[in-house]
């Protein structure tokens, strides 16, 4: 690849060849999967793959008639929204302390919070399962809410902390000389000033919560607690096998709102995904 010098034109061709190829790699499977969602079941698994199927709303009718899709959606929304609220309530004060106060053990506490992000879900899966079994929270949306909140708490705290670190100290000092208490400063100055960070953290936490699979699989066992993510894996019709067109359709139902949320926080995405380590 190491040709000595390139004219501008040459490298543009290479650039668009590379970028275009990856764009196709991203898009083609998505478009094909979309076509799966809108084709009759008979055209999903065939001896020869069908690339241009007949249009059909079979999957939609099946979802509505055979599966409590609204219930799955509702479970997802309650568990995810609830977990994000818990995260914000816990993370904002923690991030405030970690970013604006000097105290002994601050680094260690911060790192402990960060390190929980590295815990593989499988490590705690068995104990968590027993814990929720003991307290009678198996197959409950509330259990999912608590778990999702725990999974994302480190991420939310670190993202918000990173944004709080950026707020100039003078802003706070001015308010303090006016006699404002620490909590009022947090509420009236710090939170509004790092609102983009809070929103970014909330969106990213919501996405990870929507995606969560292992814990949901273990905790949910009926439509009481099935979320979209795990309900998918149960779209099977006994001897008919996996009902792919319904799966595809549900994937897109979840995809659209996520896409909108992500476009809203686009500028902050890289910072959020690295838990504040990269400012983009």
């Amino acid at each position: 690849m190491a040709k000595p010098r390139k004219t501008r034109g040459e490298s543009l061709v290479l650039r668009y060849a590379v970028l275009g190829t990856w764009a196709l790699i991203c898009l083609l499977p998505i478009l094909w999967f979309l076509s799966i969602g809108f084709r009759p079941r008979t055209e999903v698994i065939t001896p020869e793959p069908i690339y241009f199927p007949t249009f059909s709303l079979d999957a939609w009718h099946l979802l509505v008639s055979d599966w409590p899709i609204a219930q799955y959606l509702r479970n997802s929304i309650i568990a995810v929204a609830g977990s994000v609220v818990i995260d914000l309530i816990l993370a904002i004060p923690a991030a405030y302390a970690l970013s604006r106060y000097e105290f002994k053990g601050r680094e260690d506490i911060g790192f402990y919070i960060l390190s929980t992000r590295m815990m593989a879900p499988a490590i705690v899966a068995v104990p968590i399962f027993f814990l929720f079994k003991t307290v009678g929270l198996l197959d409950s949306v509330w259990a999912l809410m608590l778990i999702y909140a725990a999974i994302n708490l480190s991420l939310v705290t670190w993202i918000i902390r990173s944004y709080m670190l950026d707020i100039p100290k003078e802003l706070e000092d001015a308010a303090r000389t006016d006699g404002a208490s620490d909590l009022r400063i947090l509420w009236e100055i710090i939170i509004p000033a790092c609102l983009p960070g809070i929103i970014t953290a909330a969106v990213i936490a919501a996405i990870f919560a929507i995606n969560e699979f292992l814990f949901t699989l273990l905790i949910a066992s009926t439509a009481n607690a099935y979320t979209m993510s795990v309900a998918l894996a149960n779209f099977t019709g006994g001897s008919d096998g996996i009902i792919y067109n319904a799966i595809a359709l549900v994937s897109f139902i979840a995809f659209v709102p996520i896409l909108i949320l992500v476009i809203l926080i686009q500028k902050h995405l890289s910072r959020g995904l690295t838990m504040g380590a990269v400012k983009g």
């Binding site: 990856w22 764009a23 991203c26 898009l27 499977p29 998505i30 999967f33 799966i36 999903v44 698994i45 996405i207 929507i210 995606n211 699979f213 979209m228 993510s229 795990v230 998918l232 894996a233 996996i242 792919y244 799966i247 595809a248 549900v250 994937s251 979840a254 995809f255 996520i258 896409l259 992500v262 995405l269």
Partner: peptide, 19 residues
């Protein structure tokens, strides 16, 4: 454009590739 695959639920993506 490049973000899109990341925005699907991982379980959905797994089914996409399984199919």
């Amino acid at each position: 454009l490049y973000l899109m695959p990341m925005l699907f639920m991982p379980s959905a993506v797994a089914f996409l590739w399984k199919l």
